[in-house]
């Protein structure tokens, strides 16, 4: 019996083959790194300081409760403005502040009296990609928007695969009336115009992150069922399934322990493309204004701002470049995985 996680020679061979496809492998490393880094975005892109030394005390404000300005010698009760504090402590010499690389959070408006946003990129102000039309840092919104999009996509992927794979496998395995019934249900379901449903729902309520996942999921699980159904049909007819049956294995044991591991290459091949689809789905919904409520940082919202303000090229170009890079990397990964799992290269039986 094959196992999913046991590194048998075949798996090692697949991994080596994946590694040998350079651009896919490097894309995978960079992409994974980006996802990991985005988990700690608060220490890289934030208006809160990494470290404050004030009157001999050390503060680490990145996570947890706010530190009111009064605590750090500023006369107010709301959250300290660490960029101002940095300047102040530098002048007075009574301490120091270490700020993250991009010292802005994605919500705050960095405005001034002399000119009007959007402000072009400026290293002096640490707005490396400029600001949007209400003075929020584009880079900060890109980073936090990426985090939202990627986790949206990953959660969507896991849940929709769970549903799609189970139903698809069951359809293929049981066949008959069950199969027929579900085929029709899916056909009808997939004819409901997805976008209209979203528009209707979001006009009567504000979708939050998880509700949006549920809505997209309602229509997102379908694709996988077709593939799984076909593969399961094929696998079901193979001798090892018959052998398992002869030994008295239960249906669920046959599906999950025998058939599923043999179809895993199909599933894995689709994963990168599903991730890309998830990102695109969220971005387009946000672009159209049916996605996450403002002021949530999102790529779609940036894209829509950018396309309405083509005079301020830095907005639209930042988000398009970021999106293209991510999607290209995902595509490279997908391509490499498909190559690595290509059954023609590994199949041990005909």
């Amino acid at each position: 019996m094959m196992s999913l996680f046991n590194l048998n020679p075949l798996t090692i061979k697949k991994i080596n083959r994946f590694k040998s496809i350079r651009r896919g492998y490097y894309s995978f490393i960079i992409f994974t790194l980006l996802v990991l880094l985005s988990c700690f975005a608060e220490v890289l892109v934030n208006s809160r300081a990494l470290l404050v030394s004030y009157e001999g005390n050390l503060y680490f404000p990145s996570y947890g409760s706010i530190i009111p300005g009064r605590t750090l010698g500023l006369g107010y009760d709301y959250e300290t403005n660490y960029r101002d504090l940095q300047k102040k402590l530098k002048d007075s010499g009574s301490g120091f502040v270490i700020m993250p690389i991009i010292p802005y959070n994605p919500y705050e408006n960095d405005l001034n009296d002399s000119s009007f946003p959007p402000f072009p990129p400026s290293f002096e102000d640490s707005h490396y990609l400029g600001t949007d039309t209400i003075g929020r840092d584009v880079a900060a919104r890109l980073v936090y928007g990426f985090r939202t999009a990627i986790f949206f996509s990953l959660i969507l992927l896991v849940v929709s695969y769970l549903i799609g794979v189970s139903i698809g496998a069951a359809m293929g395995y049981y066949g008959g009336l069950f199969d027929l019934l579900f085929q029709r249900i899916i056909e009808i379901w997939s004819n409901i115009p997805f976008l209209y449903v979203i528009m209707i729902i979001s006009s009567i309520m504000i979708p939050n992150f998880f509700m949006l996942i549920v809505i997209v999921l309602l229509f997102g699980w379908i694709q996988m069922t077709w593939y799984m159904r076909t593969v399961t049909y094929k696998e079901k007819a193979r001798e090892y399934v018959m052998a398992a049956k002869a030994l008295g294995a239960s249906n669920s044991r046959i599906i999950f322990n025998h058939i599923l591991p043999n179809t895993v290459s199909i599933i894995i091949t689709f994963i990168p493309f599903s991730i890309a689809n998830g990102i695109i789905a969220l971005t387009s919904l946000d672009y159209l204004g049916f996605g996450l409520p403002p002021p949530t940082p999102s790529w779609g919202e940036l894209l829509s701002q950018g396309s309405n303000n083509l005079e301020s090229l830095w907005i639209v170009s930042s988000v398009i470049v970021a999106m293209t890079l991510i999607l290209v990397m995902v595509t490279f990964m997908g391509e490499a995985i498909r190559e690595a799992f290509d059954p023609k290269k590994h199949t041990t039986y005909e």
Binding site: Y78, E79, Y107, N109, I134, G135, R136, P295
Partner: peptide, 14 residues
């Protein structure tokens, strides 16, 4: 929206 997101940040201070 563009007005409210600025106001939201100001209200946080209050």
């Amino acid at each position: 929206t563009s007005r409210l997101v600025v106001l939201k940040e100001e209200y946080k201070r209050a």
